[in-house]
Design a protein around this nucleic acid. Structure first.
Lengths: 120, 120
DNA sequence: TTAAGTGTATTGGTGGTATATAACACTATA
DNA sequence: TATAGTGTTATATACCACCAATACACTTAA
């Protein structure tokens, strides 16, 4: 599914973001286990440690919890937390820069809406 | 002016982007010379090679041209070229991802416009 | 108990970034 | 002709992020 990796972003970061996305979009359910480090490693032809590093970030943020010998389980209530966190982050740190960029490039609403209409 | 450097982006990349921005915004004029490698190095406490690396990128893209012994001069017509290039890049590679993100986070137009209104 | 399944700590290689230092080739000016 | 100003190249050094190979500690189930 992750056709290819973006060479400008560390793989473990992309894995981390992918898990967040899948929780957010409901493909990974609260209370269930993440696919094991070795499974993902085999599927994507990666070193288990690389996946472990992504999973470690999720543990540090209390998104998942480790059950020794069993795997990593998604905590309850996390979907909402992620949604709010991403919204907050987008609105405060990304969106202002985007607006500034739009103004700097003197882009019209037509320029911005056209690609959206075409995608429909 | 560049209060501080973003630790997540190479300095020479930030220098390169800064020059592009200043040309775009009219602070650096076509036909004029860029500040010399050594001046910038002294001002920002950097190694001359670091500045040279940024300037090399600008030469590779024909933004500036070298006059041996004199310095690097901004080519004519470059302001428009940069504007079009940035617009193109923004609309095709950044904006679609932004729109997708907005949809994914189910952000309303109110959420997006509020910070803009507040800034006025 | 044994085998297979969890995650992870250690170690080492590779490549990118930036520095320090020096030298080169050229031009403009006093 | 000196001198000081351009950008550039070369070498060595240091540091850190990324990733792989290996080995370890633990749990579960046959």
């Amino acid at each position: 599914m992750p056709t290819q990796w973006d060479p400008d972003t560390p793989i473990y970061i992309q894995l981390y973001q992918q898990v967040l996305s899948r929780i957010l979009d409901g493909y990974i359910i609260e209370g269930e286990a993440l696919p094991s480090v070795r499974k993902v490693a085999a599927e994507y032809q990666l070193n288990p440690i690389t996946i472990s590093k992504a999973y470690q970030m999720l543990q540090d943020e209390n998104i998942v919890e480790k059950q020794r010998g069993k795997g990593l389980f998604v905590n309850h209530g996390v979907q909402d937390i992620i949604l709010n966190r991403e919204r907050e982050s987008f609105l405060t740190s990304q969106w202002p820069k985007i607006v500034e960029q739009i103004n700097r490039l003197k882009l019209s609403t037509d320029d911005l809406l056209q690609p959206i209409e075409e995608a429909k």
